[in-house]
Write a protein that binds this DNA or RNA. Structure first.
Lengths: 108, 108
DNA sequence: GCAATAAGTCAGAAATTTATGACCACACCT
DNA sequence: AGGTGTGGTCATAAATTTCTGACTTATTGC
């Protein structure tokens, strides 16, 4: 040993976990769609034709696990499932909006 | 055919590309470190002991390609290389800060 | 000349993420 | 009793990301 170079952090960047929650091929899209309206599985299959059932299912599970979406079963006649934003999810919306505006500015 | 279900978007979520720029195992850390000071390769190797040379190198290349960092060669005695935030990178900082504050709030 | 430091690259292996296609359970309609 | 729609799971395969370790080029110090 010699020069005691200081390691800046033991813990990973605090934002990285949240960034990870939104990383992946479909999670940004799902998240943004959830800002507009609640999500239904079969509708998503049509809205995102490129995405496989598996991928959508996994992304929804992850978003739930990260506390951004809630899965609620509607006790209606044909029994539906909806995914809706949690409070945490809603609180994240402004950051996404800000990022989007930067992208659009850049494209100007 | 029957119910003409409307596909919401042809284009991917505008934020997803920027989110992609910051996704990956080390990019969030590198980006945040770059907010504090310019980055040097060999210093990063010590600051992020878990990260391989290859990974750091690739992450730096990606961040440059996405226009968030500039690579500048310092014409000093031992010839150094530094990576510093571009204007685009700087403009992204508030969003990261916002996300971080959410994470810290949530942990409260 | 010989070793060390800085800043990498390269090939191959290992780990992680996504996609594919088959299958399941339940309710509803006819 | 068979078909359709909703909401999935599972195993496997393909694609992508990350890691490992060896090697490179240039400059400086001894």
């Amino acid at each position: 040993m010699t020069t005691p170079i200081e390691v800046v952090d033991k813990k990973p960047c605090p934002a990285s976990q949240l960034l990870k929650s939104l990383s992946g091929k479909w999670k940004p899209e799902l998240f943004r769609l959830s800002l507009t309206s609640n999500l239904r599985f079969s509708t998503l299959l049509h809205q995102l034709p490129q995405a496989s059932k598996q991928s959508i299912s996994a992304a929804l599970r992850d978003l739930q696990a990260d506390g951004l979406l809630d899965r609620i079963v509607l006790q209606e006649k044909p029994l539906h499932v909806e995914y809706q934003l949690t409070d945490k999810g809603k609180s994240l919306a402004p950051a996404l909006t800000q990022i989007e505006s930067l992208v659009l500015e850049g494209a100007r």
